[in-house]
Computed example of a mutant assay.
Amino acid sequence: MIPQAVDYKRAGSVSEAISLLAENPDAKILAGGHSLIPAMKLRLNSPSLLIDIARIPELRYIEVRDGGVAIGAASTHHDIISNADIQSRYGAMIEAGELIGDTQVRNVGTLGGSIAHADPSADWPAALIALNASIKVEGPNGAREIPATEFFLGFFYTALEEGEIVTEVVLPAPAAGSRSVYRKFMQPASRFAIVGCAASVTIDGGTITDATVAFTGVSADGAFLDEAVGAALVGKAASLETIEAAANAAAEGAELNEDHYASKTYRKHLAKVYAKRALAGACGL
């Protein structure tokens, strides 16, 4: 299907993009376009104006800050997975990024666009939650920073307010002895997650001192932090037996997704399986 007619403007700065949004309330931000354009073709979204922010220099960078890494929202998936600073610190980001779409999608699609779209089966949200990332946004009322755990609020629904755009993602410095991974059972055609699990684990002297587990694809409400699984690991030996016991509680109480790819029962089973795989990887087992 062909989209309805739409105007197009390329913003030269973040402030210009915010002004254009304020002047055109039904406009949409265009970065990589891999989520927005298909929605427009299906007439699920028919903005009067597309505001292109993909070439704003202040939105495309990756830099080390205080041992962590700041990523500009217009950085592509390829920018992220090919960056040495991210490769050396955040395994979950590399593994999640490498599993997104195909080469074309990874070369053009952006981190900011993906998380602002908040597809409940997208890969980045789980990785960002597990890594305790924060998301910086800017709008007509100024800038603010939102923890990833508070950014993803539901089905294609985020904490972004009217007129705001994502400008940056901040990954905190990883703790000594920590490791993160991402594991996914994917739909083979779209490569979206039927179940995806990101895990970050800190080990000291063979004991798990901190653990964060997040899922995507599991819940109809989108990515979420599984606090019960993480809590069940802390203070325990980093062993397969510990992981097995903790993973059995995966997705308890979640509003499970159900579609023609997987029933609720199957997704619950996969959540346990992929929690075990992610945690085993994060523990180096």
Rank of each mutant, 00 (worst) to 15 (best):
M1H: 09
P3K: 03
Q4W: 02
E16V: 02
A17H: 11
L20E: 04
N24E: 02
N24P: 03
P25E: 13
P25Y: 11
K28L: 14
L44F: 14
P47F: 10
R55N: 11
L59S: 08
R65K: 15
R65C: 07
D66M: 06
G67F: 09
G67E: 11
V69I: 14
I71L: 14
S75H: 10
H78Q: 10
D85F: 08
S88Q: 10
G97H: 02
T103Y: 06
Q104E: 10
V105D: 00
V105Y: 00
D119S: 09
S121A: 14
A122Y: 03
D123F: 05
A127Y: 04
L131D: 01
S134E: 11
S134L: 01
I135H: 08
V137S: 02
A148E: 07
A148N: 06
T149Q: 10
F152R: 05
F155C: 12
Y157D: 11
Y157H: 14
T158A: 10
A159D: 15
A159P: 12
P172S: 14
A175L: 07
A176M: 12
R179A: 10
S180C: 06
A193I: 12
I194W: 02
G196L: 12
C197Q: 06
C197M: 13
G205I: 03
T209W: 03
D210L: 04
D210Y: 01
A211E: 01
V218C: 01
S219V: 05
A220K: 15
G222N: 05
D226V: 00
V234A: 00
I243G: 05
I243P: 03
A247I: 11
T265W: 04
H269N: 02
A278Y: 01
L279T: 08
L279G: 09
A280Y: 09
